[in-house]
Amino acid sequence: MSVRREPWPEGTPSWVDCQVDDPIKESEFYAGLFGWEIRGAGEDAGGYLMAMKDGESVAGIGPKPQPGMLSVWTTYLAAGDADAVAERVVRAGGQVMMPPFDVMDAGRMFVAADSTGGMFGVWQARAHHGATVFNEHGTYCWNELHTRQFEAAEKFYADVFGYTYEHVGDGTSMRYAMFTPPDAERAVGGINDDTLMPGEPMPSYWLTWFQYDDVDEGLARAGGLGAAIMMPAIDSPVGRMAIVAAPQGEAFGLLDTNVRVGEM
């Protein structure tokens, strides 16, 4: 099991959580799907719940900060100094939607929109470093931005976090950039050009993928728990994958990296 006991390098997806209308009800869905143990984060946490796997933290489930907002999964990028990153976000053309604030002794965070409108969080670790288990069944394994402003997104995240990119795809049916922060040894996430995707255009958004050993079984289980299938299971060079919407509407991906078909 991959376990991390120290802060993540700046710019690395270090935590994910979902904001929903009824965290307790939605936690029952995720417990049934991933086998998570759900714990309260304490009286001062405002109803925030911690999802655990084998005693290790993997994700959060919390109430929406404002009624009427969409239910979403949020990707948090690690920061050594949240306030300094917030300044770079503004200089790069983004917006700080929720200014930096302390989360008890756990860390310091803020929420921002990049220059294309994609919403993300930034986490400066203190007592809580982020996810301690990852890339395992029932834990997040990849995070990617979907946008129709591909070049602008690349420039924004390079300016803010110093990302370098490795490009994959033929440029016609797929254009994708895998990003690596300066202090990381490998790519830790991606940016997808949604202008090449079929269907109605969507605003920029971050998508969280969870490792699921046997995606087809996962789809059946998710459906039985009340989820809707947004993209049926398909094979790819990175694994067998599918996208679902949980009962309260937040979308996420299921990915089995053990089943890979074809070349990049």
Rank of each mutant, 00 (worst) to 15 (best):
D22S: 12
D22A: 12
P23S: 06
I24F: 11
I24D: 12
E28M: 14
Y30C: 01
G32F: 07
L33E: 04
L33P: 07
W36H: 08
E37R: 10
G40H: 06
G42I: 00
G42S: 01
G42V: 03
A45K: 05
G47D: 00
G47M: 00
L49C: 06
L49I: 00
A51W: 04
V58W: 04
G62K: 08
G62H: 04
P63T: 02
K64Q: 15
K64P: 10
Q66S: 12
P67F: 07
G68W: 11
M69W: 13
S71C: 15
V72P: 03
T75Q: 03
L77I: 05
L77W: 08
L77R: 03
A79K: 03
G80N: 15
G80Q: 13
D81A: 05
A82T: 10
A84N: 08
A84P: 07
V85G: 05
E87N: 14
E87C: 10
V90E: 15
V90R: 15
R91I: 11
G93P: 08
G94Y: 03
G94V: 06
V96R: 01
V96A: 08
P99T: 02
P99R: 00
P100T: 08
F101I: 10
F101R: 15
G107P: 05
R108M: 12
R108Q: 07
A112E: 04
D114C: 01
S115R: 07
F120E: 00
A125N: 05
A127H: 13
H128A: 11
H129E: 10
G130Y: 01
G130Q: 06
A131S: 15
A131R: 07
E136H: 12
H137R: 13
T139W: 00
T139P: 02
Y140K: 01
C141K: 01
C141Y: 01
N143K: 03
H146A: 13
H146W: 02
T147A: 03
E151D: 15
A152V: 09
